[in-house]
Amino acid sequence: MNDKLINLMADLQEEETMKMVEELIASGTDPVTILDDARRAMEVVGKRFEQCEYFIPDLMMAGEILQGITKMVKPRIKQAQGAGKKGRVLVGTVAGDIHDIGKDIVTFMLDVSGYEVLDIGIDVPVETFVEKTREFKPQVLALSGFLTLAFDSMKKTIEALVAANLRDGLKIMIGGGQMDDEVRKYVRADAYGKDAVAAVNLCREWIGG
């Protein structure tokens, strides 16, 4: 564990972080440990976000740094990673709504938190949610929406899952601009999450990890 690297990245010092990663690679450090440290740094970032020290731009910047490190390090890792994921989460923005910024942050945070995430994009038709739920067999479904028009799309999506006998055992969370607990009741989801860290915490509560 390299505390200096973790701190640089958690403090969002992009240039210094990338320089250090380059040096570590050049000096023969195992690339897997570099990625592990990057993940630890992301945990710090997540905590700071939860404690309102960090905000959305900080998450985005951390995401950029992580992407930069992954790009440098991944080609040097021989065996495929990705084993031992904590659970499956299906994510998408509901029919009629084309907003993706919030959804993308949720996908990213769930991914770095160790979940196997399938993000099926924006303006996702009800039938596609049903089909993907059947195929991917997620433990958690995360429905995103920014506008009030998403209320009914969420409601219809969940009704369709009930009709397809896929609702039992599936936990459903909603989030996005106009969502709140009133909407959660209206669409009959299990929880409303106010941000990406809330989404991660809900997954931890529901499927562990």
Partner: peptide, 9 residues
């Protein structure tokens, strides 16, 4: 007045 209330209340 919250939009969730205006739409679902």
């Amino acid at each position: 007045v919250p939009l969730s209330m205006m739409a679902t209340g």
